[in-house]
Structures are given as C-alpha cells and as structure tokens.
C-alpha cells in the first residue's frame, strides 16, 4: 500500500512545491507579470474572463483536435493495411510520406491556409498532417509483427485475406496502434494550436497569440494551462480506452 500511496502523492506534491517555488521566487525578485506572471496572477486573470468565453475558445480548439485526430485515424489505419498488403504501393507511397513528415509543419501551415482558405478545413488538415505519420508507421509495424505461424495457419485454412487482417493482423497491431494513438493525441493539440496561430478568430491558440500581442501575459498563461490540461486529459482518455477495451494488449502486470 505504501508504494501505491507514494506513487499517487509524489507527483502531486512535486507539482505543489514547484507552484509554490514559482510564486515565491516571483515575489522575492519582483518579476514583472508581463515577463513571468505568478501563479496567483494567472488564476486571477483566468477568473477575469467569463466562463462562456473560455468554453467557447476551448470548444473551438477541441473541435479541431478531435476532428483532425479521428480523421487521421480513419485515413492512416486503412492506409497501413494497404501498405502491408502491397510491396509496390509501399515502395511508392512511403517515400512520399517521409517527405511530408520531413516538411516542418509550422512552415507549411501558412501555405495550407492560403490554399484552403481560412475556415476550419486548413486547421483540420494541419492537425491531420502532424498526427498521421506516426500512426501509419506504428500500425504498419504492428501489422507486420504478427507471428509468421499464424499467417501460415490462415493460409492453410484458405481464409479470405480480409479475415487475415480482421481476425489476426489488426488485433495483433493493437498495442502498436495504441502507442501511436497516445503520442498522436498530444500531437493533435500541437497541430490545432499551430493552425490557430496562422489563421483563426477563436480557440486557445488564437487567444495566446492575441493576449501576448497586448502583453496580457497572465491570461495567455491561463490559456496555456488549459491547453496542457486538455492534452493530459485526452492522453489519459486514450490510456483508459486501451485498458478498458484491450486489456489483453497490455504488457503483463499492467492493468
């Protein structure tokens, strides 16, 4: 019991200590709030904005994150199946994926906005671009990690290829897919914020840009804290889905 207690208390205690240190140092050295606001400034700034305002910005960002994330999943998993199936397609498509992945997303974002307009579409596309490469790579690795014996069993049963994927390869890839899903959900938040920096009238990323341009740094920090919270929460959610619905995919001793 002691160990478990320490496990849950230690991070919280560390967090509290850091916040207190931050507050204390800012006061002792009288750091101006537009350089580094104190935690208390941030709380006050957050309270000064109406709830509905925060929710509006939060929802604008979350929408992009979720649509981009799920669209990315919907594209990358079938794509991974295609790549596993065909050596030729794998040879032609993978180099293109690498090129896309090697392009700095921040550099390409303004171009995408010019091309696709300033609506939601470019923001979703940017979020997709940043998340889908790890998903494709991980899923493909998972689909290929299936024991050769099971594929031989499948072939000896003369089962349709669809079933080889649905009943053997895809379930085998689940741990790989989830490790990418966890990374990508936080990447999706980054993608949405980058997109908002380039073109948006709402959203937490937009708010940070707007606030800092007016030196309302405590409020920008409040938006940042909310963004971090969203990221953590989404990450926990993916972990929960994995444990709840795919407990067999976890390494032994984790559940």
């Amino acid at each position: 019991m002691g160990a478990r207690f320490a496990d849950s208390v230690a991070p919280a205690a560390t967090f509290v200590v850091i916040v207190l240190l931050w507050e204390g140092l800012c006061r002792v050295f009288a750091v101006p709030s537009f350089v580094l606001p104190r935690p208390s400034d941030i709380v006050i700034a957050a309270g000064a904005v109406e709830w509905s305002q925060w929710l509006g910005h939060l929802w604008a960002t979350l929408q992009i994150v979720l649509i981009g994330y799920f669209l990315s999943i919907a594209i990358s998993i079938p794509l991974a199946i295609v790549l596993t199936n065909s050596r030729l397609l794998s040879r032609t498509i993978v180099p293109m994926l690498v090129i896309v992945q090697s392009t700095p997303i921040v550099a390409i974002a303004p171009i995408i906005v010019v091309t696709l307009g300033a609506e939601m579409l470019p923001r979703v596309v940017i979020t997709c671009l940043i998340t889908f490469f790890p998903l494709v790579v991980s899923t493909t690795t998972g689909l290929r990690a299936t024991p050769e014996e099971l594929i031989e069993l499948s072939r000896s049963l003369r089962a349709p290829r669809v079933r080889e994927f649905m009943q053997i390869r895809l379930p085998y890839a689940v741990p790989y897919i989830f490790s990418a899903l966890k990374v990508c959900v936080t990447l999706a938040v980054i993608g949405a914020v980058v997109a908002e920096f380039v073109a948006a009238q709402r959203g937490l990323g937009y708010l940070i840009l707007y606030d800092t341009s007016l030196f309302k740094v405590p409020q920008a920090f409040a938006a940042l804290v909310i963004l971090v919270g969203v990221s953590l929460l989404l990450y926990r959610l993916v972990v929960w889905v994995e444990r709840r619905f795919f407990p067999w995919a976890l390494p032994r001793g984790v559940s």
Partner: peptide
C-alpha cells in the same frame, strides 16, 4: 498444389491469439 485445410499444424511456439 495449394494449401490444404485437412491438415493439422502445430508449431514450436503455441501462437495462440492473446485476445
């Protein structure tokens, strides 16, 4: 000339489906 489904296969690893 093609895979036969009237043969039982047992491998070195059990290769059961964990799920």
């Amino acid at each position: 000339s093609e895979p036969r489904d009237d043969i039982g296969l047992v491998f070195q690893r059990p290769t059961l489906l964990p799920w």
